[in-house]
Computed example of a mutant assay.
Amino acid sequence: MGFYINKTAVITGAGGVLCSAFTKSLSLAGCRVALLDLNETAVKEAAESIRKAGGEAIGIKADVLSRESLSAAHAIVNETFGKCDILINGAGGNNSKATTTKETYETGDIDDDQLLSFFNIDKAGFDFVFSLNMLGTLLPTQVFTADMLGRDDCCIINISSMNAFTPLTKIPAYSAAKAAVSNFTQWLAVHFAEQRIRVNAIAPGFFVTNQNRELLFNKHGEPTARTEKILAATPMKRFGEPEELLGTLMWLTNAKQSGFVTGTVIPVDGGFSAYSGV
Results as ranks from 00 to 15, higher is better:
residue 6 N to V: 08
residue 94 N to T: 09
residue 255 A to N: 14
residue 148 M to S: 08
residue 38 L to F: 06
residue 70 L to N: 10
residue 212 N to H: 08
residue 39 N to Y: 07
residue 140 P to W: 01
residue 161 S to P: 03
residue 146 A to H: 14
residue 263 G to I: 03
residue 267 P to W: 06
residue 178 K to I: 06
residue 207 F to S: 08
residue 199 V to D: 04
residue 152 D to C: 12
residue 4 Y to C: 11
residue 65 L to T: 09
residue 192 F to A: 03
residue 128 F to R: 12
residue 196 R to T: 15
residue 170 K to Y: 04
residue 269 D to T: 05
residue 218 N to P: 02
residue 56 E to G: 01
residue 122 D to R: 14
residue 168 L to Q: 11
residue 167 P to M: 00
residue 57 A to S: 13
residue 270 G to A: 01
residue 45 E to T: 08
residue 146 A to M: 15
residue 22 F to W: 04
residue 3 F to D: 12
residue 210 N to W: 06
residue 121 I to S: 09
residue 221 G to K: 07
residue 45 E to R: 07
residue 208 V to I: 13
residue 278 V to H: 02
residue 1 M to A: 13
residue 83 K to D: 13
residue 255 A to C: 05
residue 203 A to N: 08
residue 27 S to A: 08
residue 146 A to I: 11
residue 113 D to T: 10
residue 9 A to P: 01
residue 195 Q to L: 06
residue 141 T to K: 00
residue 161 S to D: 07
residue 231 L to H: 11
residue 249 L to F: 03
residue 232 A to H: 14
residue 257 Q to P: 06
residue 256 K to V: 14
residue 121 I to K: 05
residue 257 Q to K: 02
residue 228 E to W: 00
residue 207 F to D: 07
residue 125 G to T: 02
residue 198 R to Y: 06
residue 148 M to V: 12
residue 218 N to W: 03
residue 192 F to C: 07
residue 72 A to V: 05
residue 188 L to C: 12
residue 42 A to R: 02
residue 2 G to P: 15
residue 231 L to F: 05
residue 105 Y to L: 15
residue 129 V to E: 10
residue 169 T to V: 09
residue 108 G to D: 13
residue 73 A to F: 05
residue 128 F to Y: 10
residue 273 S to N: 11
residue 201 A to N: 05
residue 238 R to P: 02
residue 44 K to D: 09
residue 205 G to N: 14
residue 198 R to S: 11
residue 202 I to G: 02
residue 264 T to A: 03
residue 118 F to C: 05
residue 189 A to K: 07
residue 89 N to H: 00
residue 66 S to C: 12
residue 75 A to N: 07
residue 79 E to P: 01
residue 3 F to H: 12
residue 176 A to W: 06
residue 130 F to N: 15
residue 79 E to D: 11
residue 184 F to M: 01
residue 106 E to W: 12
residue 73 A to E: 13
residue 225 A to K: 01
residue 157 I to C: 04
residue 129 V to P: 06
residue 69 S to H: 12
residue 234 T to L: 10
residue 66 S to Y: 05
residue 197 I to K: 15
residue 195 Q to F: 11
residue 263 G to H: 02
residue 134 M to C: 14
residue 132 L to V: 05
residue 173 A to G: 10
residue 164 A to D: 12
residue 276 S to W: 01
residue 46 A to K: 14
residue 167 P to L: 00
residue 174 Y to W: 13
residue 194 E to T: 14
residue 75 A to T: 03
residue 4 Y to P: 13
residue 237 K to D: 06
residue 176 A to K: 03
residue 257 Q to I: 14
residue 54 G to A: 14
residue 233 A to E: 12
residue 81 F to V: 09
residue 250 M to D: 10
residue 44 K to G: 13
residue 71 S to N: 11
residue 223 P to Q: 11
residue 48 E to C: 01
residue 216 L to F: 05
residue 110 I to R: 07
residue 133 N to E: 10
residue 193 A to L: 10
residue 265 V to M: 09
residue 184 F to V: 00
